[in-house]
Design a protein around this nucleic acid. Structure first.
Lengths: 228, 228, 228, 228
DNA sequence: GATGAATGAGCATTCATTCAT
DNA sequence: CATGAATGAATGCTCATTCAT
């Protein structure tokens, strides 16, 4: 396990300028390959978990050779982290879009909460990738710089939602709380719901679907937020 | 990895009946050994995670040989599951004790919620062990029978708390809901809070401790439960 | 490649004293295994060179599994270094034996020179192992402490022979030189002769055997040492 | 690793005859490319050793692509051997120049000996390349024809120096020996001196430089050659 | 029962070589 | 011709599990 690595994301430096069209195609292809690998990795990681997933599994899934993956990612860890970044980016985008709607803040919050579920439905694996970060020892293989980057990006997402909550409080729609803490609770609740429902699925229990719990949870939570 | 295994928990059958006293000592020693192994395993699993923990780590921690562990547990998976059982047993006991106090049900619920935190503080490793069940692929190494047993025990715990919630509703302290769902939400929320705070710890972020969030979460949640 | 490692040579620590006989047997077996592995390694390393030799080759040669080798040596490098130590030990022993004969120093030197050849004939692989140290990059995988140890042991051998040469000079048998430099030349010459003859063998050339060159070289060299 | 290969050195055959000037330019360019690759390879091989050097290292050093190297050399082995040829050619040239001076043969021999050192100083890497031939297993990747070629060229160099030695003997400057064997000893001694000093450098020992040993060695050796 | 040496399948990673563009 | 992306066999090392003592 290489502990840290330099990013392999940077565009390759060409000594002489090749035809512009060719260069563009190259860049496009490179991006496409990266995405293909990520798609395969998301699948495999979420099927087997980080440790049990093998690079060969991922290669097979991507219909590529193992060596090729290492042309795009320096290590299993780096590949994993790239998935995390991707997840976070999608999240950020979705939240920003909701905030741009100009809806009343409580309606926005509801949409955010709904997006949690949508995201989980659409990218169930990406979701699970997020959960890996809790695994002890995983962070040992990630460079401090990358960890810092993860923090920044995660913090950004939390801040965005905090702003929505703060707006609702400012308008008196919600009672005064520390907005950031409200977001922590919201997110924790969703995290826990997913965890619970997945555990139950693992164990073969079928009661109370995530969908159901998710809907009811918000109503209940919001009731606690609104003034009496 | 053996997929399923016969339980090794039953007392060994002796060809010739030894003196009763000797037998009892044997049983006692066997139980003690199992506990020593479990204690070591809880420590190692929670330090390194399931995959990264090695049987030798556990043997060293227990000051036993690897071979001996296999005299008590058929596989790494089975050893892990035994920890889970232990966790659940402790939980059950604590909840039953709370229910036996005769306190008003909302006070009991508060105590249960507080116990979540106490348990996490006192047995942080055991807690983490609980989370493993969500890991995909882990259940592959556990026999259906054992899975079933886990379900039964987990269900029992949920039912116990449900009864407390139901009692509070019956008395009009809480508004009418499906008690079982309320428990799901409570548990999910706590699960998520732990997850969030551990992830942050892994990433080196120190804002908003679990203790703080845990306390505030209940006040907020309960507000949503009580009639207006 | 692990860079440094703790020695695995130390006798295992037993918690409780087992029967003395059993313990002795264990130690004896452990030593025997180590020697079996070394014998296999010497063979394989000298057949294929350090880089091309694989741990599986060595295991196969030793009729053991790969894992077993790692029970005795932490890495390929450590295994290699152990061979080097062994070579040097044999050398030291042989030279000390010659020095203990009480022969006149020039006769002793002749015997040392002859031992160079004997050693090469008897342990041709061990000899080649010594040569590896010149390979650039190999030392990168060896801990400074171990390197230091190699230096000490090598220096000891050079010093022993120096003493023989110094004695001959003191008695006026040889002209005055820096004894250490004479030894450097002697050793270099032998090293070079082996190198040349092995290269020729590699290339399929059969002229002038090492045996022949070795004998003539000493006569010629000594002529330059003796007073006119 | 391909075992044998057809030479790729021959000028390419063009289907249609291009203008003579163009052809010449092509040949010139081809030669220049080969030299650029060789220069890079010498550097990398001597830095890392044969096994640890990668084709990509060499390509990067030559500021070319890996593919291009394979247009000029069929394999890593062939590239390596081409370096050997180059080394030998330079050697031959230098010795012939010394022989053309018309100096007395013992003076010529001294100059040859000095050239050994000069060459090692000026092309330390090329020197190390020579040493590779001793490595067992390397020759497996070289065709018999190429091995034969190496032999012929090496033999040529030995013969040249032999002629110098023979001349000195004919004039009574040296005592009668088999000239070829004297050359073997000379060359072995130098080889050994380089080996010894490089090993010491690898191990971090700084006593007795090559320069010093080299100078003293000749004085001492020649003393053994001259009549009493 | 207890031990711990032995096993060997499994895995991340590297690198010589090929080939479509 | 030149490129460099793709390949996949090869390798050092790990670790769950077994079994002779």
């Amino acid at each position: 396990m290489r502990l840290y690595h330099h990013p392999r994301d940077a565009a390759p430096v060409h000594r002489e300028l090749t035809a512009l069209g060719t260069l563009q195609r190259k860049v496009r292809e490179r991006r496409a390959r990266r995405q293909a690998i990520q798609a395969a990795a998301v699948q495999v990681f979420s099927d087997k978990g980080f440790s049990r997933a093998t690079m060969e599994d991922i290669a097979r899934q991507a219909e590529l050779s193992v060596g090729t993956i290492y042309l795009y990612y320096r290590s299993k860890e780096e590949l994993y982290v790239s998935l995390l970044f991707e997840s976070m980016k999608i999240f950020t985008g979705a939240i920003e879009k909701i905030m741009a709607t100009g809806l009343p803040p409580d309606r926005q919050l509801k949409k955010v909460w709904e997006y949690f579920y949508t995201y989980h439905t659409r990218y169930p694996q990406s979701y699970r990738v997020l959960l890996f970060l809790q695994q002890p020892g995983l962070t040992a293989g990630i460079s401090p710089k990358t960890l810092q980057e993860i923090n920044v990006r995660a913090g950004r997402n939390f801040s965005l939602v905090s702003r929505v909550v703060a707006a609702a409080m400012a308008k008196g729609i919600y009672r005064a709380h520390e907005p950031r803490e409200v977001v922590d609770l919201l997110w924790s609740l969703f995290l826990g719901l997913v965890h619970l429902s997945e555990t139950r699925q693992n164990l073969g229990v079928t009661i109370s679907t995530l969908k159901d719990l998710h809907r009811k949870a918000f109503r209940w939570l919001e009731a606690g937020l609104r003034p009496r």
